[in-house]
Nucleic acid binder design. Structure first.
Lengths: 211, 211
DNA sequence: GATAAAATTAAACAAACGTTTAATTAACTT
DNA sequence: AAGTTAATTAAACGTTTGTTTAATTTTATC
């Protein structure tokens, strides 16, 4: 178990997460982070060792949440495979929109593979995720609900890709639909609902229709 | 019309594009770029004015290609709306996979909005793209082929999101399906085909099924 | 082949970077 | 209350950053 963090450590992590998501890892200086958190610059090295390790700490704290929720859902025997799949989709939508900053960083970091420790974390996450979905799909196939030969990474690509790109495209989406005057929380609720319906349509088509 | 570029200018742009896509804009130094191109560092300022303007030049040269292909396709009266939509999907797949480096940069740059000139270019691209798809969808609706109330940015999110995330996830996808031994060109041909079939299934479902 | 313009170079520039240091303050322990 | 550890600070460290300079070479023009 990881040692729990002090208030100042958490402040630094939160400020760093926000800034990394806005300006990128290399575009954010340790002075930026410290200033945003109202803490002396030297404290970053003192607490985390380095800027890189601070980034790793962000990943370690945030990346497990989604997987744990998914695995809890999959264990629920009262749900049929379709309900589980739709539930999984909703967990992704919730988690991505709740942790916008982190998922934007994650997206950038997957493109710019520089930190080996983070590459490894992401790889593990993807593998465990694929294993979970694989298990769920085989269950659905055994029950005759899902079609054969489903390409799992492709299925996940569309889920993660659609939700991720919505995260990138939120402002444009808002403008296109003239929703600028909406309160943030209302806008997000609508987005979540739309994404959910949209992805259910897609998943139903992919899981059932023979091509 | 933009003045055509010298060989050395093109070399710098190409090296910069590759490095930006691998290490990010802020993670790449002008010395990195110049060294990769085998050209003196000072030439970047001499030719382009600054590192930022070099980046803008990359965007100006690469971003129009896709839109022009789409618009040519939409003008073709021998195709019905479904054929046009499927054609559009294939243009995206082709363009993204042919210009991997650029689209990885584009993805990062949409998250890390720092350069106002690039923000504007991307915004224009998205708007023109939405207008094109809007026109196509209204045509399909008028002919009674597409359902009503199609959310165009959502539709595009899934297209761009799925293809973009495949770009990010290529290596994992390869590993998952044990395709490491395949030649690059063979692997890409398979990926393109799979993406095409996958997205057609999705688009058919979204464009026709009433929810 | 002389002259002017363009291209190329190595060196220097100030600014910003992540990190370390040494001194000081705050918080505990006994 | 004295002694010990932890937290915090401003300053300095050596690099690296993007850009500019001034000198030199190459190319083009007449």
């Amino acid at each position: 178990m990881k040692p729990s963090l002090s208030i100042k450590q958490t402040q630094l992590l939160d400020s760093a997460e926000l800034l990394f998501s806005q300006k990128g890892f290399d575009g954010t200086s340790v002075r930026d982070i410290a200033e945003a958190a109202g803490i002396n610059t030297a404290m970053i090295s003192y607490y985390f060792g380095s800027k890189e390790k601070l980034m790793e700490e962000i990943f370690e704290r945030k990346s497990l949440n989604l997987l744990e929720n998914v695995e809890k859902l999959l264990k629920d025997d009262s749900l049929d495979p379709f309900q589980k799949m739709y539930g999984l989709v909703d967990i992704y939508i919730d988690n991505f929109l709740k942790r916008k900053a982190f998922h934007r960083i994650l997206l950038c970091e997957q493109i710019i593979n520089q930190n080996p420790s983070i590459i490894q974390m992401v790889e593990k996450m993807k593998t465990r995720n694929s294993e979970n979905i694989n298990e769920l799909i085989r269950l659905g196939q055994k029950k005759g609900l899902f079609k054969k030969n489903i390409d799992i990474p492709m299925l996940t690509n569309t889920l993660v890709g659609t939700v991720s790109y919505m995260l990138i495209n939120l402002e444009f989406y808002k403008k296109y639909h003239h929703m600028e005057t909406l309160k943030d929380e209302d806008f997000e609720r609508i987005i979540k609902k739309k994404l959910s319906v949209h992805l259910r349509t897609i998943y139903k088509a992919i899981l059932t229709h023979e091509s």
